[in-house]
């Protein structure tokens, strides 16, 4: 059963409506939730900077190993070395948020440049970009990361650099596809015919007006992916290294005690990962729908 109801009275035009009216409620909820996650990340940095943490993240309390949640002074309990879980959870995101941002930024920047070259210039440049993209795509990413770790050191920044670079082809092909679509619709030709300079066409018409939503959704997906990647690497012992807290190494170290009935040290960071990744995905999805007016029409 589906219900359709006409708004009574005068039917107004789309552009006259304020954003929250023409948007779908579900999209606003998505974006709201995503922004909540982002603000929690910002809050984490603030708390860290202001030293408003309940405990020192590295302070060991050997009398209180693996304490359950609700223990006085330790809201979420402690881990296997007696460190405060809540504190480490709050700081855990910081281990990869900035490196993740760097990965996303380099993927977007490189992808946009290559995509514009391939899509706008076309011809040989396009073929080279497509070939390079296929080359990078066909190389197993995990192997690439392990190679880099072996050559340098297991540092989160190196790992994220690899992730950023390996995401370049995906972004490039999206941008290239968008430009091809605009070309199909005579959009670019019309802009050239009017006499607009090439830089205006690329920067304003192609990138700002038409690729904005696409790049935003790629950025949020990239962030989510960076978190997931670090978690997998932590499991192999190559992620963020102890004693620096990260959700990935917290899950990994907690998992050793999981079967003994101490669920919390690994479940708490796992839930944090779940809700954060969900937040980034929904943020991207919602923003895309709002900006593109996908559901609106």
């Amino acid at each position: 059963m589906k219900r359709f109801r006409q708004r009574p009275g005068e039917i107004s035009e789309f552009s006259d409506l304020p954003l929250w009216q023409k948007a779908d409620t579900i999209d606003l909820l998505y974006v709201g939730y995503g922004l909540l996650i982002v603000s929690l990340v910002v809050a984490s940095y603030l708390l860290g900077a202001l030293q408003w943490l309940p405990h020192d993240p590295n302070a060991l309390n050997l009398n209180l190993l693996l304490a359950g949640p609700g223990t006085p002074g330790h809201l979420l309990g402690t881990d296997f070395m007696g460190r405060d879980l809540l504190t480490r959870l709050v700081l855990g995101i910081q281990a990869y948020f900035l490196p993740g941002l760097m990965a996303v930024a380099s993927a977007l920047f490189g992808g946009t440049v290559l995509g514009v070259v391939a899509g706008y210039r076309g011809g040989g440049a396009g073929l080279i970009v497509t070939f390079l993209g296929n080359l990078i795509d066909s190389f197993p990413r995990l192997v690439l990361i392990l190679l880099v770790i072996a050559a340098f050191k297991p540092d989160i920044w190196y790992i994220m650099a690899v992730i950023g670079i390996s995401n370049v082809p995906a972004v490039a092909s999206l941008v290239q596809g968008k430009i091809a679509m605009l070309r199909e619709k005579n959009f670019i030709e019309a802009a050239v015919a009017l006499g607009l300079p090439t830089r205006t066409i690329i920067a304003k018409h192609i990138l700002w007006y038409n690729c904005k939503a696409l790049l935003i959704i790629q950025a949020t997906l990239g962030m989510a992916e960076a978190i997931l990647m670090e978690t997998s690497l932590s499991y192999l012992g190559f992620g963020v290294q102890e004693p620096t807290p990260s959700w990935g190494n917290m899950v990994q170290s907690g998992a050793n005690y999981f079967l003994q009935g101490n669920l919390w040290p690994s479940t708490a960071p796992a839930l944090a990962i779940l809700f954060t990744i969900l937040g980034f995905h929904l943020l991207g999805d919602g923003l895309n729908n709002l900006l593109e007016g996908k559901r609106g029409r």
């Binding site: 359709f4 006409q6 039917i11 789309f14 779908d24 029409r297």
Partner: peptide, 8 residues
């Protein structure tokens, strides 16, 4: 149904 105009 036009979703943007909430009208038939």
């Amino acid at each position: 149904y036009s979703r943007s105009k909430r009208a038939f």
